[in-house]
Amino acid sequence: MDRIALHVLTGEGPVFEKQVEYVNLPTGFGSLGVLAGHAEMLCAVEEGVLRCRWSEGTARVRVGAGVASVGHNEVNVLVASGEVLEE
């Protein structure tokens, strides 16, 4: 399965970076799923939990409000705060 390069960044540095297969972003209209090959998109991210999945595991990241850009198998999530949650 194609992978997506996920980068969750705050002004103080990267919070979470990994090659994943699926990303679920918290937005104002519910959660938004992204798979490899997704069309280019810019979206507003709300405070909540970002989930991602790859063949060997999953991860959850608590994020503050921010924006995300999707395109060319890359997801950049720029947020005010972020913290990786224990699985």
Partner: peptide, 19 residues
């Protein structure tokens, strides 16, 4: 024209402006 904005460009811009 090929970029999707969710929910719309104005809302994304407002958020990005803050950042």
């Amino acid at each position: 024209r090929d970029v999707i904005y969710e929910p719309d460009a104005g809302a994304v811009l407002a958020r990005l402006t803050e950042l």
